[in-house]
Design a protein around this nucleic acid. Structure first.
Lengths: 176, 176
DNA sequence: ACGTGATCATTCAAATTTGTATATAAATTT
DNA sequence: AAATTTATATACAAATTTGAATGATCACGT
């Protein structure tokens, strides 16, 4: 289950918007980091949900601009999806798991070099994320988007801890 | 960038396989948790990569069974993708970020209830993951797949830490 | 008023993913 | 040994995602 739909519905809660603006809000919330919200997906999602009655077209635009608004059904659908987001623990998808899966396919020496480089990059990513905390309110983002950053930083820190520990074990020949 | 292709290539490293068996191996490695490896994706990926010369059809089957083998190009492509997996830090995609993004759309009381339930589920998921460590070698999985489980447990623990701390802040009215 | 680069806004074909339907072989029950 | 269930194996239509292409509009110096 992808998150495109709930994200689109969520941007429309406070009033009608057109596709480009939907995308801009999501960008501001950092959603482009962890969701499929390329323009194509947005426009497709909007058109599809309008077809299904979750949205209505408010202003079919002169010049082509199309503005969408939530219907009552759309609001219900948002609430439904929001509740399942909170109640159902869904797997974390981390592309680094792929690297791990095939760690035995890299020569140990290369592996150690890659791991050390990754540890360095992770430290940079973590401090960058932490510095970003608090910086988005200026552009109209609600305060709690910082929590997304905090959680992300915590998960990157967990990855860093794994890498740091594993470097030693690879050097000792315990891994892979 | 999805991980379907590298996963398929990786299963074929040690010898030709047909689609169903590719899927079985991935399942064993736990990849179905964090990647798009439904049968449809596998068969499509196999056919596409064969078309592109990364694979060849070894045994066009009586009864329909089609066995694929890596070509030299396919091996190179795997190595290329493996290196980028290790060297490029890519964002962690956690569906829970969606829930966080919209935490202000739930009544605080409901929010606290959902968070407490989630903390409970996370504790269960973590201990289940930890118990699974070491259990897959019996079925032929290489030892280092345990590392995927360890990393996953660490990331879930990070999420649990966030939730536990945030419950207090919601009760105090600091969030959202 | 005129070009020109940046931002705004959408469309579209191609690639991928999902989910279900289908078909056959193997094991199990009756 | 026929019937039924389970596991193996693939195919396919529908939905979604990607990424590039296309225009329109706006700011700004000349």
């Amino acid at each position: 289950m992808s998150s495109t739909r709930i994200l689109i519905l969520g941007t429309l809660l406070d009033g009608p918007l057109h596709g480009y603006e939907v995308r801009r809000r999501l960008e501001l919330w950092g959603a482009s980091q962890w969701a499929n919200v390329a323009f194509g997906s947005i426009y497709h999602g909007l058109a599809k949900m309008a077809e299904e009655g979750l949205l209505t077209v408010v202003e079919q635009g002169k010049g082509g601009k199309t503005v969408y608004e939530l219907t009552a059904d759309g609001r219900l659908e948002f609430q439904r999806r929001l509740l399942t987001s909170w109640w159902e623990v869904q797997p974390i998808v981390d592309p680094f798991q792929v690297a791990l899966t095939f760690m035995n396919r890299l020569a140990p020496a290369d592996l150690v070099v890659a791991m050390e480089a990754r540890a360095e990059q992770l430290r940079a990513a973590i401090s960058m994320t932490e510095r970003a905390i608090g910086g988005k309110q200026a552009f109209g983002a609600p305060r709690h988007v910082d929590e997304c950053l905090r959680l992300n930083a915590a998960q990157l820190t967990a990855q860093l801890a794994w890498v740091s520990e594993a470097i030693g074990r690879v050097k000792d020949g315990e891994l892979p």
